[in-house]
């Protein structure tokens, strides 16, 4: 092969390599790790929760701080009503659940004012005691994704640099969906429980040692305490655990059995 041709081949190879390296995402920083969060995070939902006996060195707590409902052109705030007890040194993530009204005539308008109000209300949860990270839980429909993206962008801009921003994600988003790409979050937690119609497909997918395709989803798992899950966890990832009732101290033993080290 002459030099010219060789050069052409090398250039082509370089172009292909560049193409694929561009395709291979470089992961953004993970503020949750930077903030020294423990590997296991317990989701504390809208129930009376006493987590004061859970070792804060081992367990962080992501608690439902509020639910924001998008209704027409308004945002309806429902703050947490059930008590939550945690150790003073526990690492806390304030979770905001966003829902959109499905009733005809009250469907969300998804306007700028709504987005701004959401940002303001979500930022307020940082003022709660010992909260050092935020998480958004929003099962956004396709028509809502643009709105959600701009919400996360605005939120990230307004948050102090060191404050982590996490989101939950339907497991199916993490497998074959593009819309999570480049979202300004530190992680997208794939919820591998209560998956409904997705259940068998996702579990089979993971059992075959396939990984979530979206890199943001490769930092954590979301599982439920009461759902058996036969797969090989990547033990370097953070684990969020959902409980369908209030946490009790003997759940620690269950966790020790269920959660791989």
């Amino acid at each position: 092969m002459n030099l010219g041709k060789r050069l052409l081949v090398m250039l082509a190879a370089l172009a292909i390599a560049t193409f694929f390296s561009a395709k291979t995402k470089t992961l953004s920083r993970n503020r949750i790790d930077e903030n020294g969060f423990p590997r296991i995070v317990l989701w504390a939902w809208e129930r009376p929760e006493d987590l004061s006996t859970f070792d804060p060195q081992r367990f962080a707590v992501a608690f439902l701080a509020q639910t924001l409902i998008l209704k027409g052109d308004d945002v309806v705030l429902t703050p947490r009503h059930q008590p939550l007890k945690v150790r003073p040194e526990a690492k806390l993530i304030a979770v905001t659940r966003i829902e959109s009204q499905k009733t005809t005539g009250e469907r969300p308008a998804l306007i700028d004012l709504q987005r701004q109000k959401l940002v303001m209300l979500i930022m307020r949860t940082l003022e709660l005691k010992n909260v050092s990270a935020l998480q958004i839980d929003f099962d956004a429909a396709s028509s809502e994704r643009l709105f959600y993206r701009s919400l996360l962008q605005e939120l990230r801009q307004k948050l102090p640099d060191k404050v982590p921003l996490s989101m939950t994600a339907l497991a199916s988003f993490c497998v074959g969906d593009r819309w999570l790409q480049d979202l300004p979050v530190d992680e997208a937690v794939p919820m591998i429980f209560r998956m409904g119609a997705d259940d068998q497909a996702i579990k089979r997918f993971l059992s075959n040692r396939e990984d979530f395709r979206e890199p943001l989803c490769q930092r954590s798992y979301g599982i439920a305490l009461d759902e058996p899950f036969e797969t090989k966890f990547d033990t370097s990832r953070r684990l969020y655990i959902f409980n369908d009732r209030s946490w009790i101290t003997s759940d620690v033993a269950t966790l020790a059995e269920r959660v791989p080290r």
Binding site: P48, E49, D50, K85, S246, W247, I248
Partner: peptide, 16 residues
Amino acid sequence: NRKLDGVARDYEGFCN
């Protein structure tokens, strides 16, 4: 003062 099994409020209609 340690409570073991969660805090119950008005409803208290749940049991693990």
